[in-house]
Simulated assay, not measured.
Amino acid sequence: MAWYHQWASFAKRLAHVIAKPMKRDSGHGGMMVHPYRGYGSQQEVFVMGRVFRQAALGRAIPRRGMLRDTADVARRIFRRGLANAKVDIRIGENQLCLTTDRDGYFDAHLPISTALPVDISWHRADIMVHADGHLPIRTSVEVYVPPPEADLLVISDIDDTVMFTGVAEKLKMLYRLFVRKPHRRTAFPGVASLYQALYRGQTEKAERPILYVSRGPWAIYEMLETFFQLNRIPVGPILFLREWGISLRRPWPRRAEAHKRDLIDRMLALYHDMPCILIGDSGQHDPEVYTEVVKAYPTRIKAIYIRRVDKDPKREQAIQRLRAELAHTDCELVLAADSILIAEHAHAKGDISARGLQAVQRDVEAHHNEPE
């Protein structure tokens, strides 16, 4: 019966994480605001979020426990975006007013006219939301602005690059995330120390922007945040998810490769004075998308790191052909079996410190020595 208790534990933990955003209203329902961590520069910042209308809890539902979590999961499934809500955003002395779209989203582009402090990387954006028939709501969210020491932009895929997913293994992935012990969770060996090394840089004080992209919908944002915290991966803005809501206006999710390319273009324009490295996996379209990026920005991309997630000879040959296409550029495409190879290349190029490389080597070795 051990398997039953494990799966029961899995169901409880998963329900609790999915239900967590709903608990902010103490069961009263009404309007709720969910901002996502923002990003920007000293010239402009971007803050995205969604405003919801959600049902209240019945009086018979207890305040805690599995029944409450189940009720909150149901409330989350049936909540709806609130259109035309007024959103006021202030960061420092800079302010912007806008309204939510028909699905309740707001995507704020706030020009910075009054400079932000340069001695910190994370700034607080204060948000006030008004909507007819609802009490105003105040909330806040963190916004990342690179410090002057930042010398490199890192854009990384999440799915099958940072964490094991497997399109056909979502349930197993969630089981690993919420039931198994922290060191047996879903991150690839050495990923935490690799991204920490990239974040700190050669000087170990760089605090570089690391921006993560996922093919998943915004609905999994909280689970991704939990995953990053549990696995000690540097928390950058998890910016680039897709809205998967099915409607007559938008019957299908946007293609992942088009979504990713547009966002890379946006980030390269925002951080126009920084070189960039791109990290992805061999299982999807990352090598092709990244190769096209290098062709469009031949002087901006320092390296492409592709994590090998299968051993399909045809796929490897296709990636090697892409590597040959980039031979005349300053960018090298590295097909890596593990985090150590990526770290060794990054160290050789001067992008991480010797201590960072050693940390990756220790973590991967420790993982291999763990008992199953």
Rank of each mutant, 00 (worst) to 15 (best):
T186P: 02
L153I: 13
Y199V: 10
E149R: 15
P182D: 05
R185H: 07
G201Q: 06
V162M: 09
V141N: 12
G166W: 00
H134I: 08
D160W: 14
Y199L: 14
G201C: 04
T203I: 09
D132K: 11
T186A: 05
D157S: 03
E142Q: 15
F178N: 00
M173P: 10
L171P: 05
I155Y: 09
D157V: 10
A168V: 10
G201P: 13
V162Y: 04
I155F: 12
P136M: 00
R180T: 09
Y144S: 03
K172I: 13
I155K: 07
G133N: 03
R200A: 14
L194V: 03
D151C: 10
V167A: 15
E149S: 14
F164I: 14
A131Y: 04
T139V: 08
A197C: 06
M163H: 11
R176D: 09
R138W: 11
I158Y: 04
I137M: 11
Q196K: 13
L177A: 11
T161H: 13
Y175W: 11
Q202I: 10
D159P: 00
T165K: 05
L135V: 10
R138A: 13
A192C: 07
I158C: 10
P189M: 02
Y199E: 14
L198S: 00
A187E: 07
V141D: 11
T161C: 12
D151F: 08
R138F: 13
G190W: 02
I155D: 08
L177R: 02
S140H: 15
L135A: 15
H183F: 07
V179T: 08
G201H: 12
K170V: 15
V162L: 15
Q202C: 09
A150R: 12
H183T: 07
D157G: 01
V167W: 12
V143P: 09
F164T: 12
A192P: 08
S193D: 10
G133V: 11
R176W: 10
S156C: 08
V145I: 00
D132M: 08
M163A: 14
A168N: 14
R176Y: 11
I155W: 07
P189F: 02
L152N: 01
E149V: 11
T186C: 01
G133W: 06
T161P: 11
H183Y: 08
H183K: 10
D159A: 07
V141T: 15
